[in-house]
Structures are given as C-alpha cells and as structure tokens.
Design a protein around this nucleic acid. Structure first.
Lengths: 250, 250
DNA sequence: GAGTGGTCTAGACCACTGA
DNA sequence: CAGTGGTCTAGACCACTCA
C-alpha cells in the first residue's frame, strides 16, 4: 500500500526544463560570469536542496554533471569547488575522408598508388607498434574530390588483427572507411604537425615540392592491440582542422 | 518512523566498484567488442534491473552515462541503441604557452615585438569579429623557452571587453596567460593549418623563409562577446599537437 | 494503449577526511 | 566526530511515441 506522503505532486517544472538542469545552469552562470572564480566553494548539496526545495538526488545530479564536465571538483568532507582552469579540452573532429567528401556532395574517388603485403620490417614495426615480422599490409593512396587530389594516405594495417584486409580491393573503397566498418569502436591517438611537401607527396597532391602540408598521423588500437597506423598529408592551403572549446560542454 | 522494508542492507559491492559502473562497463565491453554493432538495441532499463538485481535509478545512471558519452542513443518508447559511429570526437589540449614551457621546467621569456592601441580597421574588425572603430590593442610577440624562439604570436584584444589590458606590461607576462586570469571561462574556436613561413615569421622564429609552420588561430568569446583573436605560429619541426580519442571517454 | 525513458522523492548506509 | 559527497532503494508521475 503506497504511503500517502509519496502521493503529493512532483514540484512543477518552471517551463520545460528539468529541475536539475535549472540548478546546473544557475551554477554554470555564476562560474562563467566570474562571480565564482576558480577555487571558490560551491554550496553543498544540503544548502542547494534547501534553496531549490528539491531532493538531494536532484541537486546531486546537477553537481555530478558539473563535475563530469570538469567545471567543479568534488571532495568529501570539504565540499565542491570551482575547478582550476586547465589546458582547454577542445573537441576536434576528424572525419573519415571519404565520408567527409561525400557529405559535401562532391564526387569521391580513391586511387591506390601502391600495395605491399609483407612481414613488418623494423621500421614498419616501430610505426605500427607491433613485433617485427608481424604480417602487415602497406598501402599508399590518394583521395580525390571532384577529381582533384585532396589527401595523400600512407597506411600500415596489422593483418593479425584484421586478416580480411588482404581480400579487399582498395581501389573501390577507402581503407579508412573499410576499417571503420570492420573495427567500429577503437581508440586513436593523433599527432598533428606541419611539414614541407616531399617530392613524392608533392607529386601525389599536384603541388610544388616544399609547400607546407598539414600532416595528421593516427595510430588506432582496439583492446590494446594495434590495428593500423596512417599518415595523412593535406595541402596546407586546402585544408584546416577546427577544434572547439565550450566550457558548458566540458 | 522508518519503514522496516527500507532497512535491509544495500546490496554489497563486488569489490570497490559502484554498481552502476559495473553495469556501464559490462555494456561498454559488449559494444567495443563488436558483439553489439551500431544500431543494436541495448536491453531496456527493466531488463537490466532484473538482470543486475538493482533499482531502476542505478541502471538509469549507467545508461545515462553511456548516452552522455555518445556511445548509445536513448529514445522513448523505442529503447536504447548503440550509436552510429560518427566523426571521432578527439580531445585536443591546447595549453597556454607560458604554462606549457614552465611546466617542462624550462626558462620562459616573452619578447614584445610591437604594440599598437587603435580603432579597429576593417581588417581588424573582421579578424576580431567586432564593429569597425571598436578600440583594440594589437600585439605581436615571440615566446622563448631556454632562450630559443618557440612561438610567434599575433594578437588583437577587444578593449571594450577587457579595458584593463591597456595598463599591462606585456614584456613581463604573456598576453594569453594574462587574459586567462582576466576572463577565466570563455569559449574558443581553433583553426589549425599549415603555412610556409613568411619573411617576418621566419625572422622571429629564426628559421628559413618558406619552412612549414603549424598555425593555430584562436578566437575567444565570453558570453557572446568577442574577447581576443590570436594567431600562433609554431615551427613545423619543433611542435606537434596531440589529440586523443577514447570511446569510453566519449 | 502500453512500453520506454525522463525525472523526481524521501529516505538510507557508507567512506572519507578535515577540524 | 561530524559534515560531505557517493551510492542506492522502492516507489511515483509524466511525456512521448510506436505498434
């Protein structure tokens, strides 16, 4: 039999926004405005539940969200504090080339320049982070949008991890896109730098040797196992990466 | 008076890990392993609370965390589904130069190359995204670590937003670091590209003209107001950005 | 209409740690 | 020791939407 005290109405939402969202926004506003500089103590859950007349779970959800986004640090016994501002956590999206070109409605084509199935040399092994002699597939190709070269790709694939790669015709599908379907969830680490185009790269991208190129190097793992290593070279004047930081997003 | 039914013991944790974390990890494992490819329906809250013998709030917390990290999409009436893999959300940290150098224990120095207080020209206004004739401060400087030039900085500051900038001696503190303290929480958008070093940049960085440089361009806002715009030029062979993607981190 | 997620409550026990 | 956050429960009402 339900307790009568439990039957009272849930406090109505002010408009369509959840109670905890309301509290979270109020706290964010105080932080972003500078009223509560880093190190300031945020009101405790007890104080907040009194102020907002709601249950502890509700204020806890608001504070937990702020903690998850890195805006506050929570410490037992001491309380919650506005986090020290640290290196901005920017969100950088790196899309698959094929999808990116096709999303813009441009015609896409990939040209396979070279393909070599072999046992990893010392150099290969270091690049891919696998033992020497692991069976690998080495590919170089160029991606075209509207028949103009946009990216040069130099890739190694660990055949122990993805043996079926040997059977794929990479003149038809880009290696990146194919791998994405094979190993849908993986970890990646990117290194981004600028280099002067080598003779090879210049030829592939139809630019002059020495022109600045943006180079994105990516190593992909899945469950601790190295899947692939790729070096993507973009002509400097034709591509840029965009990274965003918004404190409310963490 | 407490209800006797409420007094029974909380189900003991398996080790030190929270119940909802345990559930979350189990679901993540199924997703990362490929057992549940994108589009697969995740068990409903009802199914999970039966399987794990816990309350709905607990499984809800696990599922909400997965949704927040982008790993699953939740839809009313339909259920929760493994998300389609999209452009990887990489986390890219861009630190303040001064802090970054000092964190490595290197000696830091900034040299102010030029300083100009003026009304925004058309070009300034476009860069900073403010109306023409807004009062601005234009700075160019070079940052040194161990007395070697590491970065060239070209910055505009909106004096309407940060009037006290006029009184600062930027030979002593880097503009970026100072602004960080003035406007602790702000939004930033970065564009990253590669360019061949101009004559000026080459001179500042003590490199040869035409050498590839990594250029990070950042526009910072606070509450919709443009604060500053900065172009940072790094010698291509001396710097690289690192971005990480890890699906469990979202 | 019924199943699903979204939110909320009023408690409860616990671990941790600063005063 | 007492305050704080961390977690959990057994309900409840609601909105949405698919079948």
């Amino acid at each position: 039999m339900p307790d009568i005290r439990r039957l009272r109405r849930t406090s109505p939402r002010t408009n369509g926004v959840a109670r905890y969202t309301e509290i979270q926004r109020a706290l964010e506003t105080a932080i972003f405005s500078g009223d509560w500089p880093p190190g300031t103590r945020v009101p405790s859950e007890q104080e907040l539940l009194k102020r907002y007349r709601c249950s502890r779970m509700t204020v806890n959800k608001a504070l937990s969200a702020l903690a998850a986004s890195g805006l506050v640090v929570r410490r037992r016994r001491s309380g919650s504090f506005v986090a020290q501002r640290q290196g901005e956590k920017n969100v950088l999206q790196i899309h698959d080339i094929e999808e990116e070109i096709q999303r813009e409605g441009k015609s896409y084509r990939v040209k396979l320049v070279s393909r070599s199935e072999r046992k990893a040399t010392k150099r290969d092994a270091a690049r891919l982070d696998v033992p020497v002699s692991t069976r690998i597939l080495a590919l170089t190709c160029v991606h075209y949008g509207e028949e103009r070269p946009l990216v040069a790709e130099d890739r190694l694939i660990n055949l122990d991890a993805v043996p079926s790669a040997t059977e794929v015709d990479f003149n038809e599908t880009s290696p990146g896109n194919w791998l994405l379907k094979q190993v849908p969830w993986s970890e990646a680490e990117h290194h981004i730098r600028a280099v002067n185009a080598s003779e090879d790269i210049a030829e592939h991208l139809e630019i002059t040797e020495g022109e600045a190129c943006l180079v994105v190097e990516r190593r992909t793992r899945h469950g601790g196992r190295s899947i692939t290593h790729v070096v993507l070279s973009y002509p400097g004047d034709g591509y840029q990466l965009v990274a965003r930081f918004s404190p409310s997003q963490g």
